[in-house]
């Protein structure tokens, strides 16, 4: 009814004067409609105030109380409902994501083999030529072996949702939750290195804060000199995502390509020790800052995260296969 009334005057306007007798009636009706539509377009002042106040009080509730925020149970409840939907949607989408890789040509693959061979040769030269490098590698290997010896197991999980960069936080959802033995403050890694830590779990999903997030701080250790420092994210995802390493000893200058591994916290929460984080690509020092600031390129490609492992204590009960420290699957 309303649509009819509102379209008639336009038609009337395109052929004026054809029905002069009904013109005044038309205009009258149009006025009424326009007035109603304007009413419809303008929201009532009380509603605007109510909605804005609701937003502000929600923010105050959530930001003032921190981790014990009253919003946290609601967040969890929403996660319990939306988590399985996200897992389902990701399972549907996963086969289609692989489609572009079917169309890679023979020449493409040949080129990649050439690149890999060249890289292999370069790495072999690096390892063989310098004693210094060899020492560094031994130390680095020792650290990773130490992590294996800690007796932790890994729960495998897949990334099902990625927080949009519009939210300015780098978080992902994984498809393992408290049913799989996950709890907040557990280390998440993949076969390249450290991914992040679990901040929140529901029954079937968990939210992971990536180390590239601007809020993330990881205790780091330079593999060659054993120097300690803190690794902070910059909030940038993708191939340009970098981390900043600030060493406690400001006189220490890390070398280019030095490996940075996690320092580790007591009890392995939130980060277990010895997980590779990235390599140093540049070092900056300024007169204003007392500390050196090294730029670290993470080993993990955060734009293409898929399979990750969550570090759980050995013997954790889980609804899925757990990879034990010795490599066996339970």
């Amino acid at each position: 009814m309303a649509v009819d009334l509102f379209e008639r005057p336009t038609r009337q306007g395109s052929s004026p004067g054809q029905q002069p007798g009904r013109g005044s009636k038309q205009r009258e009706r149009r006025w009424r409609v326009t007035a109603r539509l304007e009413d419809r377009g303008r929201p009532s002042r009380s509603l605007v105030v109510a909605l804005v106040l609701a937003c502000l009080s929600l923010m105050t509730l959530d930001s003032a109380a921190g981790d014990s925020s009253p919003v946290e149970p609601v967040r969890r409840a929403v996660g319990e409902v939306l988590g399985p939907i996200e897992v389902g949607a990701a399972a549907v989408v996963r086969p289609f994501v692989a489609v572009p890789s079917w169309f890679r040509t023979h020449g493409d693959l040949r080129g990649e083999i050439g690149d890999l061979q060249a890289e292999n040769a370069r790495l072999r030269t690096e390892v063989n030529t310098a004693d210094y490098d060899r020492n560094r590698l031994r130390e680095y290997d020792g650290l990773t072996r130490a992590a294996e010896d800690l007796g932790y197991s890994l729960v495998p999980a897949r990334v099902v949702g990625l927080g949009p960069a519009q939210s300015f936080s780098s978080t992902v959802t994984i498809d393992a939750g408290s049913q799989s033995g996950l709890r907040p403050d557990m280390t998440v890694l993949n076969n390249d290195g450290l991914v992040g830590r679990v901040v929140r779990v529901t029954r079937t999903t968990a939210t992971v804060l990536l180390i590239v997030d601007a809020d993330s701080v990881v205790g780091g250790r330079v593999g060659s000199s054993m120097e300690l420092g803190s690794v902070e994210g910059r909030g940038q995802l993708g191939s340009t995502g970098r981390l900043d390493l600030e060493l406690i000893d400001s006189s220490e200058v890390p070398n280019r390509d030095d490996a940075v591994v996690t320092w580790g916290s007591e009890g392995g929460a939130p980060y277990v020790a010895g997980v590779p984080i990235g390599r140093v690509t540049a070092v900056y020092s300024s007169l204003r800052e007392t500390a050196q600031r090294a730029v670290v390129e993470p080993y993990v490609d955060f734009a293409a995260l898929d399979l990750v492992g969550v570090v759980v204590p050995s013997g954790t009960a889980s609804d899925r296969a757990v990879i034990e420290a010795d490599g066996s699957v339970r």
Partner: peptide
């Protein structure tokens, strides 16, 4: 919704 970790509202 799950991956969100910012202040609600």
């Amino acid at each position: 919704a799950p991956p969100a970790d910012h202040v609600a509202g």
